[in-house]
Design a binder for these strands. Sequence first.
DNA 1: GTCAGATACTAGGACATCCTACTAAATTTC
DNA 2: GAAATTTAGTAGGATGTCCTAGTATCTGAC
Lengths: 172, 172
Amino acid sequence: MAPMTPATPRLAADPIAEAHRQWVSHGWESAADGMAAITSLMRAHQIFLARVETVLRPFDVSFARYEVLMLLHFSKRGALPMRTIGSRLQVHQTSVTNAVDRLEAAHLVQRLPHPTDRRATLVELTRTGRALAEKATAALNAEVFTDTGLSPRAVNDVVKTLGQLRRSAGDF
Amino acid sequence: MAPMTPATPRLAADPIAEAHRQWVSHGWESAADGMAAITSLMRAHQIFLARVETVLRPFDVSFARYEVLMLLHFSKRGALPMRTIGSRLQVHQTSVTNAVDRLEAAHLVQRLPHPTDRRATLVELTRTGRALAEKATAALNAEVFTDTGLSPRAVNDVVKTLGQLRRSAGDF
DNA sequence: GTCAGATACTAGGACATCCTACTAAATTTC
DNA sequence: GAAATTTAGTAGGATGTCCTAGTATCTGAC
């Protein structure tokens, strides 16, 4: 009866919680939690991808290309076949072609013929590429990875739970 | 000393665990967990998006367009301004224009002038659009949301933890 | 040895996302 | 009330992802 109090308090501000309520009220209880989990995943992904891309922008690389650089950085010889890159990063072959095209244009990697398999192409990190990978990592560590906005315990929960999820999906 | 046992047992099969080890061994301990959490998020997103898109393919809609349909489906009048759609789904205005263009071409929604604001455009669900939303939801519920590959407890953990994360990012 | 099938990569196209303009209309300021 | 600012949408462009094809090369079955 107090006119200054909104009739609908801000209990429903989270769109995902709202969607969950809708699911339940439509009789889809058994799917509601799964829907909420997957939708949360989509939003969280979007948020963090944006944050990461913002940090990487000054280096003129995307997260996709950064991942390629780091994979090469961590490899013993600093070089890997295209196919291996795709397998490790779990992306389609044509996405690797795309990423390597751009990295090569920026002189961060270089395509070389594979010594024993003439079908294959080795991608090798250049000196510039290695330096950029290190600087970009320092920036990401400082500006994103060290503080994700979650408690250390929650961070571990995310890794563990999503790990289960990836495992059950055959990711490793 | 047992020659039949591989020197490197399959303890390192998970690429994210491997990256975590690399982070630690490069002295980036304080960022290693955050890196693993965000990378896990990226992979899990990719896996589930692919699963969802596969289920939606027979209906000729993407997940992005499905989300628009459901938002309209849940709205009282079955119609919302473009801007509202963008806010609720947390995507850029131009992504809404793109999605609505395609939905309208498929006769699933229809653009209408806003009754009181001539700048705005209302997007209204058509009968066909509503029917498709219901059928697509039934398929997603049955084939993805009801069984995500996680225990019910883990599903709730995901929602809760990612909810914290979204909240700390200002998502709601 | 040869030939069929598998594998590595690229080309071209469909979608989704974001960004930077740009137009039109509403709101705020003075 | 008129001018400045904000807000709603669209257009065009860059990137990334996937898919389907097509070429070259390797492997394995006979």
